[in-house]
Design a protein around this nucleic acid. Sequence first.
DNA 1: ACCCTAATTAGGGGGATAGCTAATTGCAAG
DNA 2: CTTGCAATTAGCTATCCCCCTAATTAGGGT
Lengths: 101, 101
Amino acid sequence: MNALFKALSHPVRRRIIAMLRAGPLASGDIAAGFDMSWPTITGHLNALKEAGLVSPEREGQTIRYRLEISAVEEAMAFLMDIAGTGETAEVPSIAQKAPRR
Amino acid sequence: MNALFKALSHPVRRRIIAMLRAGPLASGDIAAGFDMSWPTITGHLNALKEAGLVSPEREGQTIRYRLEISAVEEAMAFLMDIAGTGETAEVPSIAQKAPRR
DNA sequence: ACCCTAATTAGGGGGATAGCTAATTGCAAG
DNA sequence: CTTGCAATTAGCTATCCCCCTAATTAGGGT
């Protein structure tokens, strides 16, 4: 849970996650989308992997990263519990605030 | 968004949030729930405030912190967007090569 | 075996974080 | 004004995070 939210706290990592929504991508393809060195991206991918948000698969000489939705859901579950909306079936468009004294 | 997830990435801060679910609490009452110095807790409260997750209200000589559900929902919205089947969402424009297969 | 590409690991510098103790501010009451 | 309680700010140290370049591992092709 710790590493999970921490991974989500960096804009580059959030953008990587957004990229992977469409499907798995090779490390190099991800790195190409940023104006940073490839090793730096590798570091972010490791952080995401540590958080359980992505998983690597070797495929020849390339390595593809796949988004792990279950980790996203885990974070979501925590937030729902806080927000007081225990149901996953419905999206509450109106949220009630805690009663003000 | 950045400070928001970062605030959530620390166990003490998550526990503070959980404590505030039931209703606003004074800084001292929060600090009493942890085995750390009060100033340290003040620091965590500042981080939460910066993230928009809590807001302080002075009441006499005590200061009560109230949970801001809207910030929680903001984080939840991001995660739902990711967990959703990735149809409509802010797609980061990336230099994307043809999917290698 | 050799070389080329893909990707990671190693190492280092600079800045942010987390914890502490000590000092300070803000309020209320005497 | 002084005292007392609540809470924060100041100042410090140790650790972690982010980014870089250089070196290394791993596979595939010739």
